[in-house]
Amino acid sequence: MSSRVLKFLVIFIAVGVVAFARFGRFEPVENVAASTAEDPVKARAAFNEAVKVFFSARCSNCHPGGDAPTQGDERRIHDQDVKRGPDGKGVAGMECATCHQAENMDGEGLPPGAPNWHMPPAGNKMVFQGMTAAALCQQLKDPARNGGRKTLKESIHHIETDPLVGWAWNPGNGRSAPPLSQADFLKKLNEWIDAGAACPE
């Protein structure tokens, strides 16, 4: 394991602990039990399926804990050692859009593309890499760390409609897709929410 990854892990674990400690004070911002009976067992099972997508290379490569995205199915540090930048769009002189276009380009070594190719901003990193399912689950429910989305349905909407998220299922050039289809992924997330959005222990 590289020292960089180790360092990240330490950060992630720290983040997880902090998140967990905070959770006690965290008031859920939505009432998810309005229409469906709460079923923590079912919710956790659904989330544990869905989380495989967040952890897949397609999604997690751009959701690192530090500022360096990874690339490829092997999740190596991104070529050119590119960095997140303040708004998640890279740094001046080397933005994500410097190379990534609005669509995939066909050919070996060519950069993948989707509209508005970017990472989460520095102020809200939405870390996937190195997270446990439990920690990631808590993060998704925390507007301070989930991209400012106040309800879980808002997050689902983003996952459903953002072409950059949708790119994961059309990655091009022989890149692997996430283990669940986008439809199954959404289904599992909705199941999770509908069953009360309990997080894995």
Partner: peptide, 24 residues
Amino acid sequence: MAAAAMLKKTPKPTDADIDQAMNG
């Protein structure tokens, strides 16, 4: 051209700024 794009937004770049913009 890469340096010019960087300087527009980062007029006083550090070594790290230069690395990040010029690594490509």
